[in-house]
């Protein structure tokens, strides 16, 4: 029972940085390069955590709190998402709202820390992040509400267990959540995680002033966020094999997460980043898909 509940937590903590490695490897393969090692993100974090942090004198405690609160909130979100068919450690009725806003809290503190530096550059990134996430949030919440209504439960654990792709509505929700997944994790077509060009950056620009262990926390938090949102999407797709087949379910989750990373890698290799003006349109489209699915589920 205990291992069952904590399975996704373990998997996420252990394998989340690996997803970034897979994405980079796929992109490298598309470009005809060998690419960095699969475990590069682990090396980066290990390197950063051994270093000391540098703090600007203009910053306050908010700047130091940012990475810690960010990592803590994404851990809470992770503790709400179970392996398909089991119950997450923190599961309760209505936890999908906490799920959405734990991610919201993470973003809020990243933004506060960015603004705290007083750098106009980071302020610009913060402004974009808040704008886009304000558009992505309705899409996420309406999508989850649709699934919750179909499954008749407000708990993420029961909800993931109760749904698998059976209706056209769920396909709409999955499309919307996929767009939100890419946006929230600052991947192409919303943001290019590799570029350090000030005109286009969103997420990377906000964390420029963090260093050492703080930056390691941010990297780990970002990797976990990919895992958290990804495992919700995977949980919605995968049919459940009952509580007894924990290993099977976990293996399926892990396999699907790697598949998701491969898909993200393919998207990043074949698509260009959207013009900044186009991004809100795509997010509104995602919101419209969610709303459409929600109206359909209301009937």
């Amino acid at each position: 029972m205990q291992t069952e509940a904590y399975m996704n937590l373990f998997l996420g903590l252990a394998f989340a940085p690996l997803l970034g490695g897979i994405i980079n490897r796929i992109k490298a393969a598309f470009a005809g390069r060998t690419g960095q090692p699969l475990l590069q993100q682990y090396y980066d974090m290990y390197k950063n955590i051994r270093k000391g942090a540098v703090y600007s004198r203009t910053t306050s405690w908010l700047f130091r709190a940012g990475p810690i609160v960010g990592l803590a909130s994404v851990l809470i979100a992770l503790a709400l998402v179970p392996v398909n068919g089991s119950t997450a450690p923190l599961a309760f009725t209505g936890d999908l709202i906490l799920f959405a806003y734990a991610l919201g809290l993470m973003r809020f503190f990243t933004v506060l820390a960015a603004l705290d530096t007083g750098s106009s550059f980071e302020g610009m990134g913060a402004s974009r992040e808040v704008f886009f996430s304000a558009l992505a949030e309705p899409a996420l919440l309406l999508g989850l509400a649709t699934v919750a209504r179909r499954a008749g439960t407000l708990s993420l654990s029961e909800l993931l267990a109760a749904t698998s792709v059976t209706s056209p509505e769920l396909v709409l929700v999955l499309a919307a959540l996929g767009i939100v997944f890419l946006c929230e994790n600052a991947r192409i077509p919303f943001d290019d995680p590799n570029t350090h060009l000030e005109l286009t950056m969103i997420h990377e620009v906000m964390v420029l002033d963090h260093s050492g262990p703080d930056f390691a926390f941010i990297q780990y938090g970002a990797a976990l966020k990919v895992w958290v949102l990804g495992s919700v999407i995977v949980g919605l797709i995968l049919p459940v094999a009952g509580g007894k087949f924990l290993l099977l379910n976990s293996a399926a989750l892990l396999g699907c997460m790697f598949m998701l990373a491969v898909i993200v890698g393919i998207i990043e290799s074949t698509m260009a980043r959207l013009r900044l003006l186009r991004v809100p349109q795509l997010l509104v489209a995602a919101g419209a898909l969610s709303l459409f699915a929600f109206i359909l589920s209301m009937r």
Binding site: P280, Q281, I295, R299
Partner: peptide, 17 residues
């Protein structure tokens, strides 16, 4: 605008329902 049009479209769908 295009985003506004899509939102208007969802409103029209609601009205049509």
């Amino acid at each position: 605008g295009y985003s506004m049009s899509v939102m208007a479209g969802m409103a029209m769908f609601g009205a049509a329902l």
